[in-house]
Design a protein around this nucleic acid. Structure first.
Length: 888
RNA sequence: GGGCGGUUAGCUCAGCGGUAGAGCACUUGCUCGACACGCAAGGGGUCACUGGUUCAAUCCCAGUACCGCCCACCA
């Protein structure tokens, strides 16, 4: 017996282990079943699951469970990402708490600490994924720094290097002076803030009377100025081109050069050029062969290339000192207050990023991007929703070389070694590098040191679709599961990850890594704010789960996963789906009480009664909607379809219909109705299982037992034959539903007490309709609270003051004059009539339009005509009823 | 500056050429033997604005306004 009260947390506490042990999570490369492979975006080992993970997890799991039930050989590849910078920061913060710096530990010890953290955090994440009910192939779980993946990383690096697609170069990078590493362009966030524009007058050498004024928001960089640029056609300055300006404070002579980069419209039209500290200036510097003077050390303190009194100062202290000095010299000619964007590191948003001149490793992404672009253009990979392809195109078309080296300790150390003479050896191992070096140098006593830098985290992530399948070995898994079917991720990851997997996949596997890319929404709070720890509006999925259950959360996330939108998560909504689960629970209890449980001997095709044929039809149609929706990743449509069916159709109508049937004495009908009810419940559990795995599995085990221990997890998705569809029965029941609805509506409008049982008189019903109504008399009576049903011949005497309403050809007459206020009834009729008149007028106008009648499709015109006739008919009958009422 | 979205019921959002939909919220009744996390019946919308295409436009096209996002730039 099912408990009276449904307790999600209790139910959900007891299924997962059984599922895991059942072996259904595992893929089977040996099987002949068609593969369905998806790669889990590996969560960072930086902590715990957030709502975005919960959404991603849910969508994956729904698809995977559904495909698995449909008999496909599913591989949901799980794993974790080492998340270089993020993880290193977490561990450094922990050390901070202990008053220790990573330098105190040394690289080896520090990395050990990070591994410890990884074990801990990784375990937490996996536990949370299990709590979400996820069913990936855990046995195959990978970590981006495990041995196999590290091997793949080295192989890719070495190969690309030998192909000339990875190289070392000295250029400006975005530098994080706190972490002391380069960071990705994508990890820099421009934040608008108030600042100053300082205008400084530089003397021109040999022109005592003249100065040239430049403006800057970062005066400290002037210590590294190596030129002033003016526009070649700017008449104010043409005579100065080629002359030298005197760099204040430093005293260095710097040339005044002509370059179109200088915009005559902006500021004074003259711009200071600091090639080592500004991306644009760097380009100008290259064009004019200017010296590049780096004035910062790796912590952005002034270095030995600047005057003595500035050396060692932090960049912002230096700024103050310079401004004071400029003021003193009276060459700070103007200060404007402005708003401008300042580059911050995206994660902490607290450190200002500095363009910094260093040696780094680069991937030639402009070259690799070409085939990756082509693959999406030609449709080998398709984005859903499609418009995200634009974002992909824009990003891929404007590729700059990808800086992949990071000055960190946590990550894949770059497989490059240096000898003492400045030669580089890129190889899969130190042995190989050494052999190469000996060969090159022609001697044996060679000492090599490995490049201390590590690779950008996304480098190993880019290989995920094939490295996890065993590449570079040739494996069965690679054969079968590459390319995968779909990648499911958020739009913010297109640039970081999707694009790079496309490039690497195509380059190394010769094929795209996935056929579809489903971009899901970002989870926001109920006010539409992005959830963030600093805003304090983070909703922890686990808290929701504790309160409402995993099933409710999963269902909610699906129902809100409309394409191309943000998901605004509100607790009310989750509560609503918990209610849905409770509803299902109670419906199952009802079935149990009435011995209406799944019966393996029952063949739905054998159902005779319209009532049962109707609900079976609805099941078939619901399955079709779910399938169609999931095939095109419309999770919300699928969820709504099953919700609507379970609550709106099965519970609200079908189960109510069965009550009088089961209480009646038609043995044949009782038996079939019980069997049908059981069958429908069974189908509901199956169809709902991918969305709400826990409650469905619980109910299945409790009330639908057949083979002991059988799990919905491994159940087949239903296939229904067309013979199950009974459109006639559907029409028949729809009519009964209409009659009940109409009576209920009138009762409510007229304030007829629920307890009052009334009589229904039907006029104008065809013989067939009379038949049906008679057959469903008990159902109609119970649901509409009737005492009896009578059929009237046309023109029969109707009790005075009876209420009339029209349903097609039938007129429903309710003789309840003594129960109601007749004025109220008059008002009701008048309102109905005027509504109909408006309707008729509208249609008549349409039909009176010659162009409409001749141009619109025939069936549309016909439809309008029949609507007109119908409304006209109803209106007349109601008008008549009104007259009679007035006469009474 | 370049690009992409959005604007539909009080709220959150579906729909996308032929009578405006859902959930929540709201109102009114209901201890009718599954369920008050419930049942039943309701109220509520010139589908942002202006033009155009069409027999017909919430839906297609153009423009306007506001909102959001991505990319780039900022002397």
């Amino acid at each position: 017996m099912l408990d009276k009260k449904f307790d999600p947390s209790e139910v959900e506490s007891r299924h997962y282990e059984t599922w895991e042990k059942s072996g259904h999570f595992a893929c089977d490369p040996e099987s002949n079943a068609a593969p369905f492979a998806v790669m889990m975006p590996p969560p960072n080992v930086t902590g715990s699951l957030h709502m975005g993970h919960a959404l991603n997890c849910t969508l994956h799991d729904v698809l995977v469970r559904w495909r698995r039930m449909r008999g496909q050989d599913t591989l949901w590849q799980p794993g974790l990402d080492h998340a270089g910078i993020a993880t290193q920061m977490v561990v450094e913060r922990q050390l901070d708490g202990e008053g220790v710096h990573r330098r105190d530990l040394g690289r080896e010890e520090f990395v050990k600490r990070v591994w410890q953290w990884k074990e801990e955090s990784g375990g937490t994440i996996v536990g949370q994924q299990k709590r979400m009910g996820s069913t990936p192939d855990w046995e195959r779980s990978r970590f981006t720094m495990d041995e196999g993946l590290s091997k793949a990383v080295k192989k890719v690096f070495v190969t690309l290097y030998r192909e000339g697609l990875i190289y070392k170069d000295k250029r400006l990078v975005n530098w994080d002076p706190k972490l002391q590493t380069s960071i990705s362009d994508l990890e820099v966030e421009q934040i608008e803030q108030k600042g100053h524009m300082w205008h400084v007058a530089y003397e021109v050498e040999g022109e005592e009377a003249r100065t040239i004024t430049v403006a800057t928001t970062r005066p400290e960089t002037m210590l590294g100025d190596t030129a002033i640029a003016v526009h070649p056609e700017d008449e104010r300055y043409t005579d100065l081109i080629g002359k030298m300006a005197v760099l204040p404070i430093v005293g260095r002579l710097i040339p005044i050069v002509a370059d179109e980069y200088a915009d005559p419209e902006q500021g004074s039209g003259a711009v200071k050029i600091t090639p080592a500290h500004d991306f644009n200036d760097f380009e100008v510097g290259k064009r004019h062969d200017l010296p590049m003077i780096n004035i910062f050390d790796e912590r952005a303190r002034i270095n030995e290339n600047a005057p003595q009194e500035y050396q060692g100062l932090d960049r912002f202290e230096a700024r103050k000192k310079i401004l004071a000095e400029l003021e003193e010299q009276e060459i700070l000619v103007k200060v404007d207050k402005i708003k401008h964007s300042v580059p911050y590191d995206e994660k902490s948003k607290s450190v200002i990023i500095e363009p910094y001149l260093t040696d780094q490793w680069y991937v030639d992404t402009p070259t690799l991007a070409k085939p990756a672009l082509e693959a999406v253009r030609t449709g080998k990979t398709t984005f859903h929703p499609k418009q995200y392809e634009n974002m992909y195109f824009q990003w891929m078309e404007n590729q700059l070389p990808w800086c992949i080296s990071r000055q960190l300790w946590w990550g894949h150390q770059i497989p490059a070694w240096y000898d003492t003479e400045g030669n580089i050896y890129v190889a899969a191992s130190e042995e190989e590098a050494l052999a190469e070096a000996k060969d090159k140098l022609g001697r044996v006593d060679v000492e090599l040191t490995q490049d201390p830098d590590v690779l950008d985290t996304w480098f190993s992530s880019a290989l995920w679709p094939f490295s996890t399948l065993g590449w570079p070995e040739k494996t069965k898994e690679l054969d079968k599961y590459y390319p995968g079917q779909v990648l499911i991720t958020g739009f913010d990851i297109i640039t970081f990850w999707v694009s790079r997997m496309m490039m690497m996949g195509i380059h190394f596997m010769g094929d795209v890594p996935f056929k579809d890319v489903y971009i899901h929404a970002l989870v926001r709070d109920s006010k539409g704010q992005k959830m963030s720890k600093s805003k304090g509006n983070v909703i922890d999925p686990l808290e929701l789960i504790e309160q409402y259950g995993t099933d409710a959360l999963r269902f909610c996330l699906c129902a809100m996963a409309g394409q191309g939108r943000d998901v605004r998560l509100s607790e009310d909504r989750v509560a609503g789906y918990r209610n849905f689960a409770t509803k299902l629970w109670n419906a199952a209890r009802f079935c149990e009480m009435n011995e209406a449980l799944p019966d393996a001997k029952f063949d739905p095709a054998s159902a005779q009664y319209a009532l049962n044929r109707w609900i079976i039809t609805q099941v078939v149609e619901t399955r079709e909607v779910i399938d169609t929706a999931l095939e095109s990743y419309r999770f919300n449509d699928a969820a709504n379809a099953i919700y609507q069916f379970v609550w709106g159709t099965f519970c609200d109508w079908y189960l109510e219909f069965t009550k009088p049937v089961l209480a009646g004495d038609d043995e044949g009908m009782i038996k079939e109705t019980r069997q049908t009810t059981g069958w429908v419940l069974d189908q509901i559990l199956i169809l709902l299982n991918p969305f709400m795995p826990f409650i469905t599995e619980e109910l299945y085990a409790a009330i639908a037992p057949r083979v002991a221990g059988e799990l919905l997890l491994g159940h087949d998705w239903p296939e229904y034959g067309d013979e199950l569809k009974a459109p006639d029965s559907a029409k028949e029941i729809a009519q009964i539903v209409d009659i009940i609805g109409e009576i209920r509506s009138i009762r409510s409008d007229m304030n007829v007490p629920v307890s009052a049982k009334i009589t229904l008189m039907l006029e104008g019903a065809s013989a067939d309709q009379q038949d049906k109504v008679a057959q469903y008399r008990s159902v109609i009576s119970q649901m509409a609270r009737l005492e009896k049903v009578e059929f009237l011949k046309k023109g029969s005497e109707v009790p005075k003051g009876a209420i009339k309403t029209v349903l097609g050809e039938m007129t429903l007459i309710l003789p309840i004059a003594d129960l109601i206020d007749l004025d109220q009834e008059r008002a009701r009729l008048k309102k109905e009539i005027s509504k109909l008149e408006k309707d008729i007028a509208e249609i008549s106008k349409k039909l009176g339009n010659e162009k409409f009648v001749s141009n619109a499709p025939k069936e549309v015109v016909e439809e309008q005509k029949s609507r007109q006739a119908q409304s006209q008919n109803t209106k007349e009958k109601l008008a008549q009823a009104l007259e009679q009422l007035d006469a009474a």
